Simulated assay, not measured.
Amino acid sequence: MDGALRSYRRFDVEEALAYDATIDGSSTTVFVVALDETGRMLGGTRIQGPYQHVDEAHAVTEWEGRVGEAAIRKLIADRIPEGLLEFKSAWVEHDSEHRIAVREGLARSAIHIPHLLGARYALSTAADSVAEGWRVSGGSVVWWIPAVPYPNDRYRTVALLWDTCTFRRHAVESQLPLLEAELAELAAQVGMPPHAGGLA
């Protein structure tokens, strides 16, 4: 969270982090971090859910009172029955020579963490200027939900969705061998929930 705070402050968007509300960890199910060989943290993200109700999702607050609010609420509600997680607070250390690899690794966790928690879907929001970098693991921009000026008018935030049953159709080709190898390793180490759609 401290790394996320540094990163968000660098772009003057720390209000989007909701640091005071999330620092106690009670709203976070899993933290994912990337470490270099010395143990230095190079990036991370946190995951909320699986959700039981639409209003648990932070994304609804980003569209609240704006065009697209009903659409984002329906997107979430329709996917809760099969398991929906939300990825928040993603960051990558700006001076790391491994920035791209770290971002791609964090993006792949949008497939792995749902598998581990027995959920089918992962949701995230991001500025449209960086969304492409997070889509490499098979996420798609939800085109029918209009972008919103969040956290302020300098940004156009879009919704991204990953489906563990269909991610292979959308993932960048270079990421597929990594995704498959990591999924196989996770299956060997901890097993998979019964649905494990991504391995079908």
Score class of each variant (00 low, 15 high):
T22N: 05
S124I: 00
L199F: 13
I145W: 00
A70G: 12
L123Q: 02
A4V: 02
G3F: 00
G68S: 11
Y155F: 14
K88H: 10
V33S: 04
R169G: 11
F87D: 06
E56C: 05
A184F: 05
P149T: 02
E185W: 04
G44Y: 01
M1A: 08
Y155L: 09
L186A: 13
L178M: 08
G197P: 06
A119L: 02
A101E: 11
E182I: 02
I72K: 07
W143C: 11
R40L: 06
E69P: 12
F87P: 01
E173H: 07
L84E: 02
M1F: 00
L35D: 10
T45S: 01
R10W: 12
L17C: 02
Y121I: 00
H115C: 10
L161E: 00
P151Q: 03
S129C: 08
A187V: 08
P151Y: 01
A200G: 15
F87A: 06
A181K: 14
L199Q: 14
A71N: 14
C165W: 13
A187C: 09
G198V: 04
R135E: 05
D128H: 12
A187Q: 07
L116F: 12
L161M: 02
S96E: 03
I23A: 14
L179A: 03
Y155Q: 05
S89F: 00
D12K: 12
A101I: 01
A34S: 08
D153G: 07
L116C: 12
P193C: 10
D2P: 10
Y150P: 07
T22A: 03
S27G: 12
R46P: 01
S27M: 13
R6D: 13
E64D: 13
A126G: 06
G25Q: 13
P151A: 05
T125D: 03
V141P: 07
C165T: 10
Q52M: 03
H53R: 15
I100S: 15
V142P: 07
P50C: 03
L176W: 08
